[in-house]
C-alpha cells in the first residue's frame, strides 16, 4: 500500500458517498445516469467475486464490501425509491454498445482463460467506460448540478491517483499489470474534458453548463 493508492481509494469512497448523499438529501436523482450506476454495480460484483475465495486484508475486504453495498444502494435509490425523479429520457446511452465489446475483449485479452480471471478482466475494461452514460447525459442536457460535478471530480481523481500508484509500484516494487494500466489510462483520459470544465467553471463558483 502506498499513499497514492490509499488516497485514490478514499477519493473513490468519497465519490460514492457524495452521490448517495446527494440523492438522499435532495430526495431526487435528477441529472444522474442510472445506467452508469448499474454498470458500476456490475463492475464491483464481477471484480470482487474473489471476496469468497481469497483474503488479502481487513482493509481490502471491508472496502470491497462497502463499494458493493453502496453501488447497489445507489441503484436501489434511483430505480426504486426515487424512481419518479429519474430522468430516463435523457439517460439514453446504449449500454449494449459498451457491455458487448468489453465482454468480447475480456475473453480475448486476459491473463488466464479462467472464469474468475475473465470476469475480473471484464470488470476492469467495463469500469474504464462505465462513466460514459453519465458524461453523455450531461452533454445532452448541457448542464450538471454542482454536487454532481464534485462526484465526477472525486471519481476522476481516484483514477488519476491510481496511475501515480502504478508508476510508484513499477519503480519500487517492480510490479505492473498492463491490462489494469491501459484500461486505467483510457478511463482517466475520458475525464480530461470534464476536469478542464471543473477547474475553469465549478472551482470559480459557476455552474457547469455547456454551450448549446
Amino acid at each position: 500500500m502506498n499513499i497514492f493508492r490509499l488516497t485514490g481509494d478514499l477519493s473513490h469512497l468519497a465519490a460514492i458517498i457524495i452521490l448517495l448523499l446527494k440523492i438522499w438529501k435532495t430526495r431526487s436523482c435528477a441529472g444522474i445516469s442510472g445506467k452508469s450506476q448499474i454498470l458500476f454495480a456490475i463492475v464491483f460484483t464481477t471484480r470482487y467475486l474473489d471476496l469468497l475465495s481469497s483474503f488479502i486484508s481487513l482493509y481490502n475486504t471491508s472496502m470491497k464490501v462497502i463499494y458493493i453495498g453502496c453501488a447497489y444502494a445507489t441503484v436501489y435509490l434511483i430505480y426504486m425509491k426515487f424512481r419518479a425523479t429519474y430522468d430516463g429520457n435523457h439517460d439514453s446511452f446504449r449500454v449494449e454498445f459498451l457491455v458487448v465489446p468489453v465482454g468480447g475483449l475480456a475473453v480475448l485479452i486476459n491473463h488466464d482463460f479462467s472464469f474468475l480471471e475473465i470476469l475480473w478482466t471484464f470488470s476492469i475494461y467495463l469500469e474504464s467506460v462505465a462513466i460514459l452514460p453519465q458524461l453523455f447525459m450531461i452533454s445532452k442536457t448541457g448542464e450538471a448540478e454542482t454536487i454532481t460535478t464534485h462526484y465526477l471530480f472525486c471519481l476522476g481523481l481516484y483514477r488519476a491517483l491510481y496511475i501515480v500508484n502504478w508508476i510508484w509500484r513499477y519503480y519500487f516494487e517492480a510490479f505492473f499489470d498492463l491490462i489494469a494500466i491501459v484500461a486505467g489510462v483510457v478511463q482517466t483520459i475520458l475525464y480530461c474534458d470534464f476536469f478542464y470544465l471543473y477547474v475553469t467553471k465549478v472551482l470559480k463558483g459557476k455552474k457547469l453548463s455547456l454551450p448549446a
Binding site: M1, H111, F176
Partner: peptide
C-alpha cells in the same frame, strides 16, 4: 517484472 493482476488493489 511481474505481469500479473494486482490482487491487493481495489
Amino acid at each position: 517484472c511481474h505481469r500479473k493482476r494486482p490482487k491487493d488493489e481495489l
